[in-house]
Write a protein that binds this DNA or RNA. Structure first.
Lengths: 342, 342
DNA sequence: ACCGGGACACAAATCGATTTGTAGGCAAGG
DNA sequence: CCTTGCCTACAAATCGATTTGTGTCCCGGT
């Protein structure tokens, strides 16, 4: 027999009071006599009554849920972000609905639509294929929205980004101190000329940071030292191979992420060269694995957990402050961690 | 000015019809004349109307959402599971609410309660601290529930497990072929005697499988070759060190997971020994990193994506079939992948 | 001319909670 | 003795959609 869950009306009837009184007993918004409250609690226990949050949400126009949109939760970087977001919001009573977009615009759009329809109280998103203004046009002006992004222009949402330039400046200075001044860089896939709409990719941002850091150290960055590749170990292997077979082979290679750095290390070994003796390698992100490979990877710490925590905290502030408070932009610092590969 | 989102009533008014007609035009449950439908669609476009899914859920008693409860999404194993679950359910219109329990009973209980109150249509859970019957007592008999677990006893829910014994048998046979018959095993933390209520831990299950495999290969498993440790790299390091400093030092070490295997490899190196020349090491899980360490780790593939996909598929079947269909139990095979460490 | 049956649209009930208006009972104060 | 006000509890409206019952109009068949 399909006994449906009990409703507040069942409780009211069993306790010999009205639903109103039960509601007030639970919420405390109006006084209920001690005797009545006692009776209600007993009935609730006995029937194992649990309030229907869907009904509550409909009435209160608040779902206590937020959406987290990332490219791919199975990537090494996102789980730490997701975990921190989860913890930050959970303690305030929010649950997280997670969406994987694979960086595809239509998936991002579909998810945003769906989340708006579901009435989430806020959205944390790493936009991959959509412009900020397009995101806003879907979610509306008042939806609390935190972007995990590097956007420079005018703000249409709160933003949490990482200060990639800082860690990169550290790294470049460190390399210069070791007299490794002719730095090569493995960036992300080549991308169509930046429209104002689109966000810059990590590869582009980090390349620019290297350029600037080299210059400010008094060095000279050579454009033929840049290789483009996919953000994978294979991409790194190919880019690394090209940098090593050139007539004037690279002696220091920095990479836009750790996965590529692992591929570069493969390429160096395949060329029969030593790390860091012949070629020094520096990564970016400091995924768990960076500390496990041999030699252990010198890299720049990209603090995923901090990004997640800051995103959650900012979203909560936005929900509390309303849509008219000025947008926040926060930069999480990055820093170099020296291990064995450079 | 705070312009609230449009409701079906707004659409009806603007189109000069009743809300009923708009609903029927959208759902197709009853006929609506072509002209009227056309007009309604235009208004919907113009107002950018999107149905409120909370209201829909209240009426239909279906939220098109499922909960995924794991110990820690930031662990290396779960993201792949989560991703597969997400994909399997998303294509059927479900969203996933994710909960991290850290393996703590009270967090598991709290989350289950919350998800029931939120009216999720199903739950996929890796129980860590709760017994199955306790889980059932919270979620109720009719809630579609898929457990990612190894439970042997009577079924109270659908179960997806991995056939750890199979990959372990492969591995043991492989080692015996190389004449490595005196196998040591690094298991998980020592645990109080099993109550019938509690589920067996991976460490216990895998240790038992090794014992059995050794016996069926005609070998003899020695109990002093077992070390207990936490499922971490540090745990593996300590357990490995103990196995190596013993008078009769181990020459083959299998581990309950890859992280421990990495720690064991550290210990072997710290002892100045070669892998696999002096000591062969075998892991379990095949996390991404297993293929990145030096030497590359020989391990047993624990197919997280398959587990996730099977969980999602099973949950969908359960939702379709209702609570009275017999429970399913599915074992995902594991297999050995030979690389360099053994 | 009458009846049967589509086709089409609307009103009202429903899902389960919250919130507001109101009313009865009782005590204190003028 | 009557007013004022507090305490307590209930009835009804509300959130936004779906679903069912009902009614009207119009066409074709006899």
């Amino acid at each position: 027999m399909m006994t449906r869950a009990h409703s507040i009306a069942d409780v009211a009837q069993a306790a010999g009071v009205s639903a109103t009184t039960v509601s007030h007993a639970l919420s405390g918004k109006r006084a209920v006599s001690a005797a009545t409250r006692q009776r209600i609690y007993e009935v609730i226990d006995r029937l194992d009554y649990r309030p229907n949050l869907v009904a509550k949400s409909l009435r209160s126009q608040k779902t206590n849920s937020v959406a987290l949109l990332v490219a791919d939760i199975a990537n090494p970087y996102y789980p730490a972000v997701a975990r921190a977001v989860h913890d930050g919001l959970n303690s305030e009573g929010y649950v997280s609905i997670i969406g994987n977009t694979d960086g595809e615009a239509h998936a991002e759009r579909r998810f945003l639509q769906e989340m708006v329809s579901r009435g989430v109280d806020g959205i944390i998103m790493q936009p991959a294929a959509m412009s900020v203004s397009e995101v806003r046009s879907i979610v509306g002006r008042v939806m609390p929205l935190v972007l995990i992004a590097h956007e420079r222009g005018s703000l249409l949402a709160d933003q949490i980004g990482t200060d990639d330039a800082r860690g990169i400046a550290d790294a470049v200075r460190y390399l210069f101190d070791k007299d490794l001044t002719d730095i090569a860089f493995v960036s992300g896939p080549e991308v169509e000329p930046l429209t104002t709409a689109r966000l810059a990719t990590p590869g582009i941002i980090r390349l620019a940071a290297v350029r600037k850091a080299v210059k400010s150290c008094g060095g000279k960055f050579r454009d033929n030292r840049v290789e483009h590749a996919t953000y994978t170990r294979d991409g790194g292997f190919e880019a690394g191979s090209r940098l090593l077979t050139a007539f004037d082979r690279a002696r220091v290679i920095m990479c836009a992420n750790d996965l590529m750095a692992f591929g570069v290390m493969d390429a160096v070994r395949a060329a029969g060269l030593a790390i860091p003796g012949d070629v020094a390698v520096v990564g970016f992100d400091d995924v768990d694995t960076a500390n496990l490979v041999t030699p252990r990877l010198t890299t720049i710490v990209n603090p995923a957990a901090q990004v997640g925590a800051a995103s959650a905290a900012t979203l909560l502030r936005r929900i509390a402050a309303g849509p008219d408070a000025p947008y926040e932009r926060q930069l999480i610092p990055t820093h170099l961690v020296v291990r064995e590969s450079a």
